[in-house]
């Protein structure tokens, strides 16, 4: 059960590694950019999981929203969740800049395959 309790962390690492592998192994620039997005998504899962509270005897934390005075903790930590809102924005902007550059590469080179681009550069110089 102990290792199952870490299920989300395992999942986060698996997603991060799939994304990381994609960035390195794919030769298509757009696929690299998508893999980069996946890579960052894994980190979001990691942070979100971190904020969730579960005491050793199994009681889960509740959302820290003050709706009911009788509701007294333990609360989940909202801080990592809030951080991820910013990180998601950053990730989206990174992807946007990447895609904008890829569009320009397509216009100037006529391809977004890394091998063909390298070959075109070699022909130039």
């Amino acid at each position: 059960m102990e290792s199952f309790g870490y299920f989300n962390y395992w999942l986060a690492i698996v997603i991060i590694m799939i994304g990381f592998y994609g960035v390195i192994a794919r030769r298509n620039l757009l696929k690299q950019a998508i893999s980069l997005g996946l890579f960052q998504t894994g980190v979001f899962l990691f942070y979100v999981t971190m904020g969730v509270y579960r005491s050793p005897d199994g009681t889960a934390g509740v959302a820290p929203i003050w709706t009911d005075a009788a509701k007294t903790g333990p609360f989940d930590n909202p801080l990592p969740h809030v951080l991820m809102l910013t990180a998601i924005v950053v990730s989206v902007s990174t992807l946007a800049v990447a895609v904008a550059i890829i569009v320009n590469i397509q216009r100037k080179y006529g391809t977004i395959e890394e091998d063909e681009i390298l070959e075109a550069d070699k022909r130039d110089s």
Partner: peptide, 20 residues
């Protein structure tokens, strides 16, 4: 020089990995 685009994308990918 169109090579700037490829250089920028490479920088973006490695830089984002570093930042992550």
């Amino acid at each position: 020089d169109r090579r700037a685009l490829v250089a920028a994308l490479k920088y973006l990918i490695l830089g984002s990995i570093g930042a992550t």
